[in-house]
Write a protein that binds this DNA or RNA. Structure first.
Lengths: 246, 246
DNA sequence: GAGTGGTCTAGACCACCCC
DNA sequence: GGGTGGTCTAGACCACTCC
């Protein structure tokens, strides 16, 4: 018989959220194992003395997040655990390196307001020659050069950007201080050979392979926030992500 | 004033689904523009003579899919359009090349049942030496070699795999004929230099850059379906994907 | 204060699965 | 037939935004 949990109806936390956290905890602590059947939605509702729709809201979220799966007419089951990449959604360089247990830092080569050329203007949905930030940095992890990065950011959205702000996570700055919500990013991956500039910046040899990642980050409302071109040292960096079907 | 649409309560299609499709159509046909306010949930409910919860179910799905965004106390808005990559979720080589307007094909080099070594067994969640399929193929688009690919698939899940089946989309085979649901994939990207085998298979020169993609595909219930290592010609292939925050 | 999305209730009927 | 998830109803109160 499944051990149940308790919820606090007087808590400011929504009930569906408390259920989500409790089920996640049960999975993580091994009280629920992969492919175990969960109590039915009606059981949860009766035992916790709440409505079935509230239970469904919690379970829907966990299904979308990949913790559970449902089978029509049969029941709701625990999915096999996702690995560490569970951690990764869309992350900035700073967040990602911290997650890998490395200390991220940057060497700022240039921070300027420049008029957007056609390609950049197109990526950021502004008109050509609109002023935007261009930020060129060498990205380091544990003080080793990892990537040469050029970022273009909308000056409209990020008024008064300073070198100081750039030293911390720009995503967290946008979310916590400006109050905008980051939604998603379109990202492309190519393999190339190091150029002269990259050889010098990253202290690598001629013909070294480079992982070229181009990313456009969008806010929740679909407005582009930044366009970034990053050249990663292939010997030190592998990019990992999780992609959902449909 | 917003033009409204009609729904058919006697249709076998769920009402929330009809609403989703109608709103998507209005966005795609330009009746609704980015950052337009939608009618409120209560308005939809009253005008369509349905319950507000049903309206919410439709809008929730569209928010999750990135078509709309909400602001507490203000309203629901149309997001700026995602580009073509909207098409791409998790796709197979076959599906992806078709989406790019190219004709995919394969040259099967080898199809065998082999005992899993430790690395593969770990990826596929089976014990070492369990028999699994090893499939080595050259992947072509419009008859040009694009990648050298080695796939390992669980023989438990894919009993009786044949060269014939491999000529079509394996994902669609799994979903339509075996009836399993594909959930997500963990994918990694590295840049390398072509090996002797890759040079020969892909007819490329020494020192050519290669985009090495490794993917483990999981079913909805979390069971691993396949582990694939693909070496793409960097001059012909750029991988693109969309990643969501959180 | 009026309107909005966020949360929640206590029911209902359906299609599907298993016995 | 009894249980499950899938869909849907007609209300309710809350916190938030805007005027």
């Amino acid at each position: 018989m499944n051990q149940l949990f308790v919820i606090d109806k007087s808590s400011p936390l929504p009930i569906y959220y408390q259920i989500e956290e409790s089920i996640k905890r049960q999975i993580e602590e091994g009280e629920l194992h992969p492919h175990d059947v969960l109590p039915s939605e009606r059981e949860y509702a009766e035992l916790l003395e709440i409505s079935r729709m509230t239970v469904r809201q919690a379970i829907n979220n966990l299904v979308n997040a990949g913790y559970l799966y449902r089978q029509k007419g049969r029941g709701t089951y625990v999915a096999e655990k996702k690995l560490e990449q569970q951690l990764l959604g869309l992350t900035s360089f700073t967040e990602e390196m911290k997650a890998r247990g490395m200390m991220p830092s940057s060497k700022l080569l240039s921070l300027e307001l420049i008029p957007a050329n056609e390609k950049i203007a197109n990526q950021l949905h502004v008109t050509t020659n609109t002023l935007i930030y261009e930020i060129i940095r060498i990205r380091l992890a544990d003080n080793m050069p990892m990537a040469l990065e050029t970022a273009y950011m909308s000056a409209d959205l990020l008024k008064g950007l300073t070198a100081e702000i750039l030293n911390h996570s720009i995503y967290q700055y946008v979310e916590k201080h400006i109050g905008l919500k980051i939604g998603y990013a379109k990202q492309s991956f190519e393999s190339t050979i190091a150029s002269e500039v990259e050889m010098a910046s990253l202290s690598i040899a001629k013909h070294s392979p480079i992982l070229l990642i181009q990313r456009t980050t969008y806010l929740e409302d679909g407005r582009p926030l930044e366009f970034v071109k990053s050249s990663y040292r292939a010997d030190r960096y592998t990019f990992t992500c999780t992609i959902n079907r449909h």
